[in-house]
Structures are given as structure tokens and as C-alpha cells.
């Protein structure tokens, strides 16, 4: 296969775009497309200060790489979860994130969950009902809380995460088969902050396939954690990704069009009234100032109180 731009040997073939590219042109193409999405969805401008949520994985490190290449002011935030899982998952991902930042002279905030809250994510999840044996719900709640807090406290303009198209399509698929209209209303490349304790959130990679992001990281020689978080094994999101990839194999572009036609339908008013409803019913947590649906303390603060009891 030949590169469409120069006729050299292609290293990647994107069937959904009928586009194959060589290393050099692929490494140009990804940032160009990212810039296009940033503009299209009005994510941020060069004046904005961006906080990138960095996990040490291929997506978030690539996102940070691309944003700085494009000339944006982007700092990183690494959250240490205290997950070992036999392969030293958290230690390794922190090491790779720090190494990435250092080698490029970028600034990285590090928040350690065990240092700050006295327990690792797996420990927290055994001490609360939320856990139910799997720490993902506790983990998600904690990460969201810390990301918001760090971004608001340090006066960033926007928080950027490395979600790719496969992540978004898997969430969309899960929410659709259960008709979770509230979640569907809130799924978007840009989440506006409707509360002073919330940060605006954007997903600049939401139109790239996961495979494309891995190819970018490899070709750009970014060292990322290849091993998964041990708790991701057997997760629903992986199962949904496999189902969608089965569809994709037969119909190139199926994943992309599933997501894009959802965004279009939403734009045309699907789920609109529900989202307005959600917005007006937000209260402020007495303890941390972040929004909560029920008056009093937010779910995160209640969880922290419960585990320290």
C-alpha cells in the first residue's frame, strides 16, 4: 500500500477514510485533524490554559504531545491511584508520565490518592458499598473529583481528556442499549461547566480510532504503559469495543458513523429538554464546593466520610 500524499510505503490504512499514509505524513495528519476538531467543536483557543488529564497511556500522552506541538499551553495532571495488580501499574504509569514531562520540559501536577485520602483506590472500594468488589466506580468518582478540583483551583480554562472514538462509541453503545437518556444527553466532545465548582471538559481525540492513537504513539516514539489497569480486564467497555469492532470489520466506518450520527441527532434536538432539566437542579456540596444533585454533601465527600469512619 502506498501513502496517498507521497507514494511512499504506507504504515497505516484507515479504511473508514479510504486513506493510507506513510510515517511522516501520518505524524502530520493526526495533529492537523486534531486542530480541525478543536476548531469545529470550539474546544479552546491559543490563549486558554489547558489541563490535560494524563494516565501514562497512549491516548493521554499522545494528546499532550499533539497539543504542545500545535502550540497550545497545556500542563498535565497525573493522579496516582495506588493500583499495583502484580505489575506495578500505578508506579509504572506515573514514571512514564513524569519521564514524558521531563524530557519535553512540560509541567506535570501529581496528586496521590493514598497520600491525600489515606487509602488506595482498591482499599477505598473494599470499605464502601460503592465498590461491590470492583474499584472502577470509586476510581471514576475520585478521578472526576480531583480533576475538577485541580483545574478550578489552579484556574485553568479547560480540562482535556484523551478519550478516543472507541471509548466514546462504547459508552454510547452501553447507554443506548439501556436507554440511559440522562447520560446520552450529557455525552459530547465538549461538556460546558454549568456550575462554579465544575471545569469545562473537552475530548480533542474523540474522532480518532483507538488503533490510530496507538499507531501515533508508536510512530512518535512515545513510551506509554502497554499493560492495562488490572481491573479493566473483562470490563463491559472492552466487551462493547469488541462488538463494535466486529461491526467495523464488515462495514468500515460503522463505529465512526454510529458516533457522528448520534452527535448530529443531538444537535438537532434529540434529548434537549432533559439536559436543560439536569442543569437547573444542581446543588453545591457544603464540603468541597463541587456540584451535587442532592442537597448536602456530594457523592465523593460522602464516600470519603464513610471510608474514614
Amino acid at each position: 500500500m502506498k501513502c496517498r500524499k507521497c507514494g511512499g510505503k504506507a504504515v497505516i490504512n484507515m479504511r473508514q477514510h479510504k486513506l493510507s499514509l506513510c510515517t511522516e505524513h501520518y505524524l502530520d495528519w493526526i495533529p492537523e485533524q486534531t486542530e480541525r476538531f478543536i476548531t469545529k467543536y470550539r474546544m479552546f483557543s491559543p490563549q486558554d490554559r489547558i489541563l490535560v488529564a494524563v494516565s501514562g497511556g497512549k491516548d493521554s500522552l499522545s494528546l499532550w504531545d499533539i497539543l504542545t506541538q500545535l502550540g497550545y499551553q497545556a500542563d498535565g495532571l497525573y493522579i496516582g491511584l495506588g493500583i499495583d495488580g502484580g505489575n506495578g501499574y500505578s508506579d509504572l504509569s506515573q514514571h512514564l508520565s513524569e519521564q514524558f514531562a521531563e524530557s519535553r520540559g512540560l509541567s506535570l501536577h501529581v496528586v496521590s490518592v493514598p497520600e491525600e485520602f489515606g487509602a488506595t483506590i482498591p482499599e477505598m472500594s473494599t470499605r464502601t458499598l460503592r465498590g461491590k468488589g470492583k474499584p472502577c466506580s470509586v476510581c471514576g468518582l475520585t478521578k472526576r473529583h480531583i480533576m475538577n478540583r485541580m483545574a478550578v483551583e489552579s484556574s485553568y480554562d479547560v480540562l482535556a481528556t484523551g478519550h478516543n472514538l472507541d471509548d466514546e462509541a462504547a459508552v454510547l453503545f452501553g447507554n443506548t442499549i439501556n436507554w440511559q437518556t440522562g447520560f446520552l444527553a450529557r455525552q459530547s466532545p465538549v461538556l460546558e461547566a454549568h456550575h462554579p465548582g465544575l471545569m469545562r471538559k473537552v475530548k480533542p481525540l474523540c474522532r480518532f480510532y483507538e488503533r490510530e492513537m496507538a499507531a501515533y504513539a508508536i510512530l512518535q516514539k512515545i513510551e506509554y504503559v502497554y499493560e492495562e489497569c488490572p481491573y479493566a480486564i473483562g470490563s463491559k467497555s472492552i466487551y462493547y469495543k469488541e462488538l463494535l469492532n466486529q461491526l467495523e470489520a464488515e462495514r468500515p466506518g460503522a463505529k465512526l458513523s454510529f458516533y457522528l450520527s448520534f452527535l448530529k441527532a443531538k444537535d438537532e434536538g434529540l434529548f434537549a429538554s432533559k439536559s436543560t432539566q439536569d442543569r437547573t437542579s444542581l446543588n453545591t456540596c457544603h464540603n468541597c464546593g463541587q456540584p451535587t444533585t442532592a442537597p448536602g454533601e456530594c457523592a465523593f465527600c460522602r464516600m470519603i466520610t464513610a471510608i474514614n469512619r
Binding site: 497512549k58 496507538a214 481491573y231 479493566a232 469495543k241
Partner: peptide
């Protein structure tokens, strides 16, 4: 072969 799908 490099696995590219991650979960969580």
C-alpha cells in the same frame, strides 16, 4: 502484534 484496545 500490539494490542490497542484498553478498557476501564
Amino acid at each position: 502484534l500490539i494490542a490497542v484496545i484498553s478498557g476501564g
